[in-house]
Nucleic acid binder design. Structure first.
Length: 926
RNA sequence: GGGCGGCUAGCUCAGUUGGUUAGAGCGCCUGCCUUACAAGCAGGAUGUCGGGGGUUCGAGUCCCUCGCUGCCCACCA
């Protein structure tokens, strides 16, 4: 490859090629320890074992997933950080993988079966699971393939799947240990039942939605002593009348005087006619509804608890599809909502319906199927979560895990402190089957790592394995340990656990982040450190930092959703503008505390930025070729690791190197604080503003090969140009890896010393900044802008050079004289003279450092000029008044920091010059 | 019912512990095909920092209050 570049930047011509190259060359593989990684990748990064390790897990996308903007944001941020750490010389280990996603995947395959007019039940469990594996082999890699296209610098040799053998061993081990520790129990409790998925789900899988519902007020006939109707009624309120056949009591508050006379009496449950007791319980709220509540222990968690306190029976009235069962009498077989309607109709006919009130309540829906969750009594497996939560709380309280933004810590504590036991069993076929066996003889349960030969209770061999599988999040909660070989104590585990960072959206804070913290703190505490010493909580945590990013919304701030049809497919955006531009957009918009309103116009702008850099490279390569023709050759390979300048170098050289160095420092600080937006903005400003707009224009003077001149000076200028550009590419490369890889290889004519720019070192955070050069350049730029504005105001044709006059201090004059070539070229000035005074009526541009005018016959429009100056004067006078007021205020002088007072004094002195000058300029216009 | 954000230029957003003249990109206006780039160059205009009150020498920044808006959590039928 030579440094010939196509005239126009076309990301589609370069990105796929590099994406493939990075994967094929195993550039980002971190060779594992014996029992760790599957593949022995090229040891590119580990020639010298680095001191510091940067480890991070990719939040595993579902195998059923398609890439969306949220993923892309997540991966862009992670990739920027990983590449940055890697370029700082750390061993960067970013581990990718996918999640088997129990319910989602099972649903997907079941849908496929349905289209083939069959079902999982027709297939049977074993064949169905086989079928899911086939499905996974076929489609499961789609999302990771898309990731490759994003340039994610992960170690593909370490790719995991949560159902892999190693990870399954970890799952079994974790389950068995928790069981041994008495932290897993099985029992009949009210769970969130999804009638559509036909499985229990955990609390976090239920999404609550406010809705306008109805509150039915119903009359129950009271039964007094001797089982006789007293003729009185008790009215209760319910939102779910279909559960009435499951009523086992009516409860009132013991102190509620309205009901005192009914204590110890009963009522008739209207649907089935059963006589059920009136009980008293302080849980009942006197001011809600009528103060009397029906009790249905099999269908409501509160009622369940109350029922246990009062030893009431539990009547389940629905089957697993939420159709009424035999307990519902005449309503048997009906769907729950049909039953509700019919029951209400009948109650109304019998005169037992008092009224129907509008009522806003929140209804729980299944996160996956969107079906309404039915609280239902069912036998499930649970984790006793309190002991795990305690350690997880301590880990964050004690600062072993840091959240960014910090406020999420509060959300985390809030949740962790109000946590309920975790229902981990799912009535699915796809997932980690619970390692428990039921005895046909004694009905005891045997929990074991391997299939047991006999029942641990009665010794018989009549065992059947539990049919339930584990919640998907059980296995993903173990990932930080299991991907490094746990429960074996591997060298990888020693080396890479705890991971440094987790980057994710808040939507899986409870699902995944919290579970990893609980599991990590629980299990790893038992795992000694590499040196054999006991592990402390600080080193048991799964990661040291959590960075939580925003949600990506559409340009109108709407949440992207398939139903709204406003989903922006990142692949489309990439096709239009390139991966680099899309990445840069996300980085630039990723400011903390606010969601990202993704706007393609912005991406278009960053494609222009990429194009700008592309063209800067073309220009630079052109200069290299011209220089070679003039006998000046600067071989890229001979450049120092960072551009160096001395006092002898030109102002522009010293300035651009200083700007590069301060930009590098700024980028480092921004990335340390996860301020991707600031980092992106610093680089953008530097590359476009400083490098292209100013430096390249000045360099054209330094490298004017059309005339004779100082060869060494030209060689020096070319060296600086090349050095700064190459360093700037490295600075940009974590953000735009494709473009920079392409240009970097071209820079070395296709023969770079390393295989990738990603393996070079990042520009240092502590290179020298030349304040003097920066401030001198700022003055120069100020004058150039002023002269350009004068040219515009006077209507000087673009190409015409005009003479200019400047009045300034001797120091400023010296600076301007020394750089008159820059002034002449950039402001198109034919000749610059220094004057004591200006001709009457001359139009000036004024700054504290200088006054400037151009000499051009066509008069400046006095009306427009007066208007401008009058506005300017008003602003300055206002500022002056405020400055003088403050400086006359002793409280200010006494209390404000010296720097602030000095600064204001200096400014006041400037204003003292500027105000009369501006006033005089207005006068001069007469 | 609890809790957390946001409200700054036409639009999308920055604005560090209160400190001199509140910024950027896009858009807008004017002039330029100046051979790296028209996906460009140069110049310009644009703000009662949601309303009100308070603390302070000084408030976009801190406190109170009101308004609008978004989100999370929650077992009151």
């Amino acid at each position: 490859m030579s440094h010939e570049l196509a005239k126009a930047y076309d990301p589609s011509q370069i990105e796929d090629r590099w994406a493939q190259y990075w994967v094929d060359e195993h550039l980002f593989d971190v060779p594992g320890s014996a029992s760790g990684s599957k593949a022995a990748g090229a040891a590119t990064q580990a020639a010298v074992p680095p001191q510091k390790v940067f480890t991070m897990l990719l939040p595993p996308p579902n195998v059923t997933g398609r890439l969306h903007m949220g993923h892309m944001l997540n991966q862009t941020e992670m990739d920027i950080l990983t590449r940055w750490h890697r370029m700082r010389g750390e061993l960067a280990n970013w581990v990718p993988g996918t999640d088997h996603a129990g319910i989602a995947t099972q649903m997907m395959v079941e849908r496929q079966l349905a289209s083939e007019k069959t079902s999982r039940h027709a297939l049977g469990r074993e064949a169905f699971v086989d079928r899911v594996w086939q499905w996974r082999a076929h489609y499961g890699g789609a999302i990771l393939d898309q990731m490759k296209r994003l340039g994610a610098s992960v170690d593909w040799s370490r790719e995991y799947f949560t159902m892999d053998e190693g990870l399954s061993i970890a799952v079994k081990e974790a389950f068995v240990r928790l069981h041994e520790q008495g932290l897993i129990y099985r029992g009949a409790y009210i769970v969130n039942w999804c009638p559509s998925c036909q499985t229990a789900v955990s609390d976090v899988e239920v999404v609550h939605e406010e809705q306008q519902g109805k509150l039915y007020v119903i009359r129950y006939n009271v039964v007094g002593p001797g089982d006789r109707l007293t003729g009185e009624t008790i009215t209760i309120a319910t939102t779910r009348p279909e559960t009435m056949p499951g009523d086992v009591a009516v409860a009132v508050h013991p102190d509620d005087e309205r009901y005192t006379r009914f204590h110890l009496m009963s009522v008739v449950e209207p649907v089935t006619g059963r006589v059920i007791p009136i009980v008293t319980d302080t849980w009942v709220s006197r001011d809600f509804g009528t103060g009397a509540v029906k009790i249905t222990p099999a269908h409501d968690p509160n009622d369940f608890e109350l029922g246990k306190r009062h030893l009431l029976p539990q009547i389940n009235v629905m089957d697993e599809t939420a159709h009424m069962n035999a307990a519902a009498g005449a309503y048997t077989g009906l769907d729950r909502f049909v039953a509700r309607k019919q029951i209400i109709a009948e109650l109304e006919a019998r005169g037992l319906l008092v009224e129907i009130k509008e009522h806003t309540n929140s209804v729980g829906r299944c996160e996956r199927s969107r079906d309404i969750i039915e609280p239902r009594l069912s036998t499930q497996w649970f984790i006793k979560i309190q002991p795990l939560a305690e350690k997880a709380i301590a880990a964050v309280e004690e600062g072993h895990i840091r959240f960014t933004p910090d406020q999420y810590k509060k959300t985390y504590f809030e949740w962790m402190r109000n946590i309920h036991d975790w229902c981990i069993s799912r009535q699915l076929w796809w997932g980690h089957r619970i390692p428990a066996w039921h005895c046909d003889v004694c009905h005891g349960v045997t929990v074991a790592r391997e299939t047991p030969a006999q029942c641990s209770h009665c010794g018989t061999t009549e065992l059947k394995q539990e049919t339930d599988v584990l919640d998907t999040w059980f296995s993903s909660g173990l990932l930080p340990m299991s991907v490094f070989g746990w429960p074996q104590h591997t060298p990888d585990l020693d080396r890479f656990y705890p991971t440094q960072l987790l980057v994710t959206g808040f939507d899986i804070l409870f699902f995944w982040v919290a579970r990893m913290i609980m599991f990590g703190c629980h299990f790893m505490l038992d795992e000694p450190m590499a040196d054999g010493t006991p592990r402390r909580l600080a080193d048991a945590v799964p990661f040291r930092e959590v960075y939580i990013h925003a949600l990506v919304r559409d340009a109108d701030r709407q949440k992207m959703s398939k139903t709204k049809g406003n989903v922006i497919d990142p692949i489309d955006t990439i096709r239009k503008f390139g991966t680099d531009a899309t990445r840069f957009t996300l980085a630039a918009m990723a400011s903390p505390g606010t969601d990202i309103a993704f706007n393609e116009e912005r991406t278009e702008g960053y494609r222009a930025f990429a194009n700008k850099i592309w063209n800067a490279a073309r220009f630079l390569f052109m200069q290299v070729d011209r220089a070679a023709e003039a006998g000046i050759v600067v071989a890229p390979a001979t450049l120092p690791p960072a551009p160096v300048v001395t006092e002898q170098d030109t102002l522009d050289a010293r300035w651009i190197v200083s700007r590069l160095n301060s930009t590098a420092a700024n980028v480092h600080h921004a990335l340390e604080d996860y301020r991707f937006d600031e980092a992106a903005s610093f680089i953008y400003q530097f590359f476009w503003g400083d490098f292209c707009d100013w430096y390249l224009e000045i360099v054209k003077i330094r490298l004017d090969f059309t005339s004779d001149g100082d060869l060494e000076a030209r060689r020096s200028a070319l060296t600086t140009l090349l050095g700064v550009f190459e360093a700037a590419l490295r600075l940009l490369s974590p953000f735009m890896p494709f473009l920079t890889e392409e240009l970097w290889h071209a820079f070395y004519d296709g023969k770079p010393a390393l295989k990738s720019i990603a393996l070079t070192r990042y520009p240092s955070a502590v290179s020298p900044v030349d304040e003097a050069a920066e401030s001198a350049m700022t003055q120069l730029q100020g004058l150039i802008v002023a002269l350009r504005d004068l040219r515009r105001a006077a209507g000087v044709p673009e190409k015409e050079a005009v003479p200019a006059q400047v009045r300034s201090s001797e120091a400023t004059a010296a600076l301007l004289r020394a750089n008159s070539d820059i002034l002449e070229r950039l402001a198109r000035i034919s000749h610059l003279t220094f004057v004591e005074s200006f001709a009457d009526g001359a139009v000036l541009r004024t700054t504290p450092e200088f006054d400037a005018a151009i000499i051009f016959e066509k008069q400046i429009d006095p009306v427009a000029e007066r208007e401008r100056l009058t506005k300017e004067l008003a602003r300055l006078e206002k500022e002056q008044a405020s400055a003088e007021r403050q400086l006359g205020n002793e409280a200010f002088l006494g209390k404000a920091p010296v720097a602030v007072v000095d600064g204001l004094r200096k400014r006041a002195a400037e204003l003292q010059q500027l105000v009369p000058k501006t006033r005089a300029a207005i006068e001069g216009l007469r």
